[in-house]
């Protein structure tokens, strides 16, 4: 994704070049050439031919599709089983805690409505940047703006 973003983002000079090459915007609606281009790209593209599979090739294709679906199904079931198991264990632990210590149980069921994942949480990538993490980062101190009255 990040790679894609990098290629998708054009350099400034290239942007300026494109801007210069773009047709001058014509005000007045129907005369705009860009609309004509958009219309042609959107609706006048030739329909792509779908490959016509027959015989053994079709069988292979269907087998692969079925195997992939089966794999996905098994993965999903495995995940669900794992989560369900953990959930039941958690529930049992809470029941046990209720019997053991009233004070701890009360503390365990306290919830906040404004809870979020920390902003610093980074979604893992397969190609992380070597300079991607600022180890000396300190969160900014939030400044509450004074109310105008």
């Amino acid at each position: 994704m990040s790679l894609f973003a990098r290629t998708g983002r054009l350099s400034l000079s290239r942007q300026q070049l494109l801007r210069a090459a773009a047709p001058a915007p014509v005000t007045g609606g129907s005369g705009d050439q860009r609309l004509e281009i958009i219309r042609r790209v959107l609706f006048e593209q030739p329909t792509r031919e779908t490959p016509n599979l027959e015989g053994e090739a079709l069988q292979q294709h269907e087998t692969i599709e079925r195997a992939w679906k089966l794999h996905q199904n098994q993965e999903r079931e495995r995940r669900n089983r794992e989560l369900e198991k953990k959930f039941r264990k958690m529930s049992a632990a809470m029941n046990e805690l209720e019997k053991t210590s009233d004070r701890l149980f009360k503390a365990a069921i306290v919830k906040s409505r404004h809870i979020t994942f920390p902003r610093e949480m980074k979604i893992p990538t397969e190609t992380p940047s070597p300079q991607g993490w600022n180890h000396d980062y300190t969160p900014p101190v939030e400044v509450v703006p004074a109310k105008n009255s």
């Binding site: 998708g8 983002r9 942007q15 915007p25």
Partner: peptide, 12 residues
């Protein structure tokens, strides 16, 4: 958006 950024001027 990266898709639009490159061809920004083509959108009226």
């Amino acid at each position: 958006f990266p898709e639009i950024e490159g061809s920004f001027d083509m959108y009226p």
